[in-house]
Design a protein around this nucleic acid. Structure first.
Lengths: 260, 260
DNA sequence: CAGTGGTCTAGACCACTGG
DNA sequence: CAGTGGTCTAGACCACTGC
């Protein structure tokens, strides 16, 4: 491992007026190296990574330094520590993180996310990106994307109408049929079949009225206010990998947010 | 400091079938003690707390253990570390954390939170808690509360209509006049005059239609969908200290959320 | 320059898991 | 029981702030 501090200082006196030399602690460099291994798929979602001791040997640093790097990656939900077992690459395939990005909860006490929400695909096909979809996904207008629309029902009641766009490149080979046949969590499919793990997401929320088609699918009148949730999901390197536009009914559910 | 591990194990064999003995690490105990000092006002918002070395001496543990406790409190935004200066009690009075709990952003690029949002108090008075307000604030129906309604304008456009309830007890002495005259961030007033620091908050979000009064104040038609944001804010010991019900216009603004 | 938080190390021991 | 992560300590040194 390179020594801490500035890597190979060119001269003793830095040129004044330039940006600060940006001191980077050792554990941050280790964090970067681990992140790189994650991106490159050296360790896949759900798998164990080497023990802290092994990583320390590999990077030629102390175990405490590796620990601090892993601590931060675990805080970002990229890794999961399990005492006595090891450290694992986080995944969307586990039961307790199924709906990690879904903030809609039923008003009444118990979580109905268990009754795993009947999913109906309304539409699903390959097409070319419109200007705004392209911009959100970091593509050029006209680039191939996979588009899909589905309806989620809770206890039989249509509650979420969701449009989804995926970039054609990273998801090459994903067919409309495959997507519609699959019945697990969508993000788990992306991981196992395309090596794309969604790490974080941004959401923009508005109150809107549905158009006729949306109202009909959600079984509400044209004057019913709905929550519009536009989500962009990103993978490791902050590259956008998914755009979702959801319409949520909030007569029996609400969007919950915790401010720390 | 008490020794780590279970405090004074009663017998060698624990009674089976009971809850686990709940091993509590030293640094967690230290964290609790610091939290206690914060609650009791030993160190007030904005003030420095003793150095890590001093705290280590006070609690009879190593500096590293204090560090881990302070690290967690800093991660929770209860403390703020500043290299070379010391560790400070977090506060809402600083410029860059003014609107820490407000997630509404303008659609167009620049943040207009700077043009500090003209505030108009529509109403403000003492009254008795209704059943639902009492439940949210952990009071009994009929207990005294301070109620207030205000309108926030961005660039002259009425955008947020907000009702607010405060428990009468902790805010004894707060008059409607004082609240209406004050022109800084509200949470800063609560800290400096009543020793109540808001630490975290929960929000429930829905899409709704305004009634006539609301529509008139927000200058929208009756059919305009609005974001309903119900916030409960908590202080150190997780005691609810404020209930807000906001109506947000989302034609020029949106509610932004980051999912980690 | 003294005092603060920030990094790094090395080693001991504890708690938990699985074979 | 061996191997993993989790805690705790002690000490050295670095980076930053303010006097």
């Amino acid at each position: 491992m390179v020594s801490p501090g500035r890597p190979a200082p060119p001269t003793d006196a830095e040129p004044a007026g330039l940006a600060a030399p940006a001191f980077s602690p050792l554990y941050q460099q280790i964090k970067g190296l681990i992140l790189q291994s994650l991106q490159q798929g050296e360790w896949k979602p759900g798998e164990v990574i080497p023990s802290e001791f092994d990583l320390a040997a590999r990077y030629k640093v102390s175990q405490g330094t590796v620990r601090k790097a892993v601590d931060e990656l675990a805080a970002d939900h990229l890794l999961v520590r399990r005492q006595g077992r090891g450290t694992f690459v986080a995944t969307h395939a586990e039961q307790h993180v199924q709906y990690r990005f879904l903030r809609l909860h039923p008003d009444s006490g118990t979580v109905d996310n268990e009754g795993p929400a009947q999913r109906d695909f309304v539409d699903c096909r390959r097409q070319r990106a419109s200007a705004d979809v392209a911009r959100a996904l970091g593509l050029r207008a006209g680039d191939p994307v996979l588009q899909s629309r589905r309806l989620l029902r809770f206890a039989g009641v249509p509650t979420i109408l969701e449009d989804l766009w995926l970039p054609g490149g990273p998801f090459k080979g994903l067919t409309a049929e495959r997507l519609m046949q699959y019945h697990g969590p969508m993000y788990a499919l992306f991981e196992s079949e395309f090596g794309v793990r969604m790490v974080r997401a941004d959401e923009k929320i508005r109150a809107v009225l549905p158009d006729e088609g949306q109202a009909s699918l959600l079984d509400v009148t044209l004057g019913t206010p709905l929550l519009s949730v536009e989500r962009t999901a990103y993978t490791y390197n902050d590259a956008p990998m998914e755009l979702r536009r959801g319409l949520y009914r909030t007569d029996t559910h609400h969007y919950r947010n915790q401010l720390g």
